[in-house]
Design a protein around this nucleic acid. Structure first.
Length: 435
RNA sequence: GGAGGGAUGACAGAGCGGACGAAUGUACCGGUCUUGAAAACCGGCGUGGGCUUGCCCACCGUGGGUUCAAAUCCCACUCCCUCCGCCA
């Protein structure tokens, strides 16, 4: 949630910044008008309530002094005020509700580093990386045997079975098999092991309550993108960010314990409702995938470092895996609702000849913390909202795709990099199963 | 799924219709004492909101209700603990 106080104090600054994200100025003016109305109604209601409280006190006193007639008169007028107060209170609640529901739809104020743009076409490439780039190697040219899409490799080697997945759960639910399944497990373990000295590893629930989804900003805006289990009031998490951000919800932390850095691998569920029919081959876009998330609660001063650290770790993984990747600074049109600044990492997938998003490293400023009410006490006793930062390291389905394509050999086998060998039982070559 | 007990400030824990935003202890902050620290003593110490910055309002798991007045009474729900059942 954006800072209403800031909107009041410097409306033009906030309006201008949000206009970059396509929020009409009129919407903000509407919010400001509701805010004024809300406060004036609130004052009236509170005045009435103060009066009722005072009268009630007098009733008590009168009763104690056995002044029963006076008590009765006071009770009478307090009762009348009570009727008025009920009406006043309803008006306050109605306006508060209207104000709040509008406020919840407002995205975060973008950082100055965020470039203007309407969609992903306008994201700004920050840099590219490929093996031996430092040694002056040119951007890789991929061999013919690497130009095979992963869904074909998957079928050929018996490691990815989209048809059986669809039989079980519908299309876009992948089924990994044999060495394919093992590779997925290896990638997750490889990443978690690399974070373990600095990030506490968690294994959170895969479902979350509506309030939890509100905290991260996924609700109310993205309800259509998520799976809901209505009977139990639960939502399937679209990312580990959801449980991680809420772990200290409603708490006041000590400045000394910040930054709090957490990591978790979770399944991520996405309906992909808005993108029906697009990029549906293989693992390009799936309803369920595993992802390791890195997360930090921190002070505003620590936020830049926390963001850089997560980005660095995501990059180090891609470098260790030897994948070609690039960094994009997301433009205003492509930025997630809650984010103030996001760097995406995309791997190059030679078989499908495309860049695939595998990580999003975002700084949320205090937007999520305000919704989730996560604050901290500074050393001089003041209470401030924390900042939240998170990023994937990494989303494995697309990494898996890029891996099998990048490492496909001329003989059709897939020879995976040695760093994964310990996680693959020492055997890092995937061959077709003799059947 | 069934039966019972519980949920109060950072923590522990009292309060169970009227001056209770809440005793007390611990923790924390400031001071006295001390070479320093500890102990002792003194003082302070919840969060959010509104405005006329001194006051007012809200909050005692959540939501409703009763009442002139609710942490306190009633109803529903959620979560935690104990026991029984079922179960990977």
């Amino acid at each position: 949630m954006i800072n209403l106080g800031q909107l009041r104090r410097e409306p033009d600054v906030v309006k201008a910044a949000l206009a970059r994200r396509g929020v009409p100025t009129e919407t903000m003016d509407e919010i400001l008008a509701l805010d004024v109305e809300h406060r004036s109604l609130l004052q009236e209601d509170e005045r009435l309530r103060a009066e009722i409280k005072e009268l009630s006190r007098q009733v008590g006193d009168a009763r104690r002094n056995k002044e029963l007639d006076a008590a009765e008169t006071l009770t009478q007028s307090s009762r009348e005020l009570g009727d008025k107060e009920r009406v006043a209170n309803e008006a306050v609640e109605r306006v508060a509700e209207a104000l709040n529901s509008r406020l919840l739809m407002i995205p975060n104020v973008p950082d100055d580093r965020v470039p203007d743009g309407v969609d992903e076409e306008d994201n700004v490439e920050v840099r590219r990386w490929w093996v031996d780039m430092d040694q002056g190697a040119p951007f890789p040219t991929f061999a013919e045997h690497q130009r095979v899409p992963h869904w074909e490799i998957g079928t050929e080697l018996g490691i990815l079975d989209m048809e059986s997945g669809a039989k079980m759960a519908g299309s876009m639910f992948p089924l990994y098999r044999g060495a394919g399944s093992r590779l997925l497990r290896a990638l997750g373990a490889f990443s978690l092991d690399r974070q373990r000295d600095d990030y506490e590893e968690l294994r959170p629930p895969s479902f979350a309550l509506t309030e939890t989804m509100m905290a991260t900003g996924h609700l109310p805006k993205s309800a259509d993108d998520m799976y809901a289990i209505e009977r139990d009031g639960l939502w399937a998490i679209p990312t580990g960010e959801v449980p991680l951000t809420s772990i200290r919800r409603g708490e006041i932390l000590n400045e000394a314990e910040l930054p709090i850095r957490l990591t978790a691998q979770t399944a991520c569920f996405r309906r992909e409702a808005g993108s029906a029919g697009k990029d549906t081959r293989g693992l390009l876009r799936v309803h369920e995938f595993d992802k390791v998330e890195l997360f930090a609660y921190c002070t505003p001063e620590q936020a830049d470092d926390a963001h850089a650290d997560i980005l660095r770790r995501a990059e180090e993984l891609l470098q260790a895996l030897g994948l070609t990747y690039r960094l994009l600074n997301l433009c205003t049109g492509d930025l997630g609702t809650a984010s103030a600044y996001t760097i995406d990492l995309e791997v190059f997938s030679p078989g499908v000849d495309r860049w695939l998003e595998v990580s999003s490293v975002s700084w949320f400023r205090d937007y999520q913390a305000r919704r989730a009410s996560v604050r901290y006490r500074t050393s001089d006793g003041k209470i401030e909202l924390v900042h939240t930062v998170n990023g994937s390291a990494l989303g494995w389905s697309r990494v898996w795709a890029a891996m099998v394509e990048t490492y496909r050999q001329a003989d059709g086998t897939v020879r995976l990099p040695d760093v994964l060998a310990p996680y693959l039982g020492g055997d890092s070559t995937i061959r077709a199963r003799a059947s």
